[in-house]
């Protein structure tokens, strides 16, 4: 599903050159639940941004679902993200002026789905994440956990091939974090490919594969028991 070869990412700020990823090779298969872990500054979020087409690697090749992403222009990358990828961000990143259901509807509408149908799908997904009683609430009336559920609903509503999650539990308490992780587990059981960045080993072990980074390099890549 994702084949990354020799990914290098270097940030240049004036005379300061900061290499963050120093040649990453990895292969993620369809239906896998992969956790990327590592200490702060290891490059795990940067790796996720490259894999999820939010950023361009300085060097290397990323092929997703058979398509070489380096050859895509901006419009193609945007369309690819819309149709094939889903995102869950650390700080939920839901739009404050849209209600829960409207947030979930946005990418579905963008795919050309009629409004009524988009709302129907969104309501189903919100029900799936346990928010059927909060669909018309604005984000400021939702708790952190509820906002993250909206974010997950938005990420999966358009049935992406790969779901990327960047520290999805970082701002949540332990109980809520477990609830969110169990949602990911449910999705994984249904065959969803998930790539999750986390710095918490306990949650990483819920994935079926853990990739550990240090100083921009993979230092371990193992299956969990």
């Amino acid at each position: 599903m994702i084949k990354a070869q020799h990914i290098v990412k270097t940030f240049i700020n004036g005379d300061v050159v900061t290499p963050v990823l120093k040649g990453i090779d990895l292969d993620i298969r369809s239906g896998e639940f992969v956790a990327i872990i590592g200490p702060s500054g290891a490059g795990k979020s940067t790796l996720m941004y490259q894999l999820s087409l939010l950023d361009h690697p300085t060097k290397g090749s990323i092929v997703i679902d058979g398509r070489e992403t380096a050859e895509m222009n901006i419009a193609e990358r945007t369309a690819f993200r819309l149709h094939e990828l889903g995102y869950v961000f650390q700080d939920y990143a839901i739009l404050p002026e849209l209600t829960a259901v409207e947030n979930v509807m946005t990418p579905i509408l963008m795919k050309g789905t009629p409004k009524k149908e988009a709302r129907k799908i969104s309501l189903q997904v919100l029900d799936q994440v346990g928010l059927s009683d909060r669909v018309d609430f604005l984000p400021n009336r939702l708790s952190g956990g509820q906002q993250q559920r909206v974010s997950i609903a938005r990420a999966i509503a358009h049935e992406p091939k790969i779901l990327f999650a960047d520290e999805p539990t970082a701002n949540l308490d332990t109980v809520t974090s477990r609830e969110i992780l169990s949602l990911f587990m449910d999705l994984h059981v249904k065959g969803q490919t998930i790539v999750m960045v986390t710095h918490e080993k306990e949650f990483a072990e819920m994935a079926e594969r853990i990739i550990e980074l240090k100083d921009g390099r993979i230092i371990s890549d193992k299956k969990t028991t």
Binding site: L95, P107, M110
Partner: peptide, 16 residues
Amino acid sequence: RKYIGILKGIGVEPRV
């Protein structure tokens, strides 16, 4: 700006 970035991130075209 952050929300504009997120919209672009989830696939909403810049022209929209």
